[in-house]
């Protein structure tokens, strides 16, 4: 064979090998010590992998990418910042866990009616030898509430209650009604009946008693908490429950098609005014109820859930300040 022919064959082989092998080698080298997580819509498999292991105190390097549409990534009950997981892009995140346990990572951008099913777990082991903190059961369990049962309001107002008007009669109110414990354990309609039966308030008209209920509900929340609740509601709830709480979100039809039920309508006084904060907490924590409601237990801290609940009641009550 001629020398030129040999040279040309070598050149062809070298050129092809170079182009094919260098990227692979670089990719292999880059991937050392890193967990690569691919996000897909839940219908096409969700997170892959959907369970990973980590050690307490050892930084966990993650490379996140989406294989289809826009997703987001966050770890429940942690203060790790939420990151976007964009299609065809890599997002790198490094997390160090201080406490052992099972953490849930979840998608933060709605990616279809089954968005909330896009979850995975991180098993964090090792580390602290302290005995785990005793966890108190959530209030709905302590109160033994059946969160699957219907909860019609025993009474409903004839006009929209206003915490601002209620504040005018606040001085007449016994302080026992204003405690956090009272607020969380009672539905607004129960509170209305309690106040109506209170002789100290017998001079008040029915609407004004309702205004007092609104006042109690508001005084157990803060403007910051309600704002936080509003933000979280928009991100996590309104796709089904509707941006104005009407149970008519963009996925309500598909929820109905899957479960035969519609997402709860918070603008309906007959339903929401019969629900206590504790009951709502149970529904948010555990989900289910045959309605396609996601469970948020592994994701939200308790305070976060109370903020959302505080916001949800503003679909019924006018606030002092927006």
């Amino acid at each position: 064979m001629k020398r030129s022919e040999i040279l040309s064959r070598l050149l062809v082989i070298a050129g092809v090998l170079l182009v094919l092998s260098v990227p692979l080698a670089v990719h292999f080298y880059e991937g050392q010590g890193i967990v690569e997580i691919h996000g897909r819509m839940a219908e096409s498999g969700g997170w892959s992998p959907n369970s990973i292991h980590a050690q307490v105190g050892v930084p966990l390097h993650l490379r996140l990418t989406s294989d289809d549409v826009m997703h987001g990534f966050a770890i429940g009950q942690s203060d790790m910042p939420v990151v976007d997981v964009a299609p065809g892009k890599m997002t790198e995140v490094t997390i160090t866990f201080n406490k052992p346990g099972t953490y849930t990572y979840y998608c933060t951008r709605w990616c279809g009616p089954n968005h909330w099913r896009m979850r995975g777990t991180i098993e964090v082991s090792g580390g602290s030898s302290d005995a785990p903190q005793p966890v108190s059961p959530p209030l709905y369990m302590t109160l033994n509430l059946n969160i699957d049962a219907p909860h019609p309001a025993i009474a409903t107002p004839t006009e929209r209650p206003s915490a601002l008007r209620g504040a005018a009669f606040a001085a007449m109110l016994s302080s026992s009604y204003l405690t956090n414990d009272y607020y969380r354990a009672h539905s607004p309609s129960q509170a209305y009946l309690d106040l109506r039966a209170d002789p100290a308030l017998s001079s008040l008209s029915n609407p004004n008693v309702w205004d007092l209920v609104a006042y109690i509900w508001q005084s157990n929340t803060t403007p910051e908490g309600r704002a936080e609740g509003q933000r979280l509601f928009a991100r996590n709830c309104s796709a089904c429950h509707g941006e104005s709480g009407g149970g008519d979100g963009v996925f309500s039809a598909s929820v109905n098609a899957q479960t035969g039920k519609f997402p709860a309508n918070f603008t309906d006084p007959a339903s929401l005014l019969g629900a206590s904060p504790a009951l709502l907490q149970g529904k948010i924590l555990r989900g289910g109820m045959g309605t396609g409601m996601p469970y948020w237990g592994p994701i939200f801290e308790n305070e976060t859930i109370w903020s959302i609940i505080g916001y949800i009641y503003t679909f019924q009550f006018d606030e002092v300040q927006k």
Binding site: V12, G15, V16, V19, L20, G88
Partner: peptide, 26 residues
């Protein structure tokens, strides 16, 4: 020219098979 084209072509096949399944980023 051929070597460049052939290498680029095989590279395109490789990226298609092992790169991101997102069309506009592959």
């Amino acid at each position: 020219g051929f070597i460049v084209m052939l290498a680029g072509f095989l590279y395109a096949i490789m990226t298609g098979f092992i790169g991101t399944p997102v069309g506009n980023n592959n």
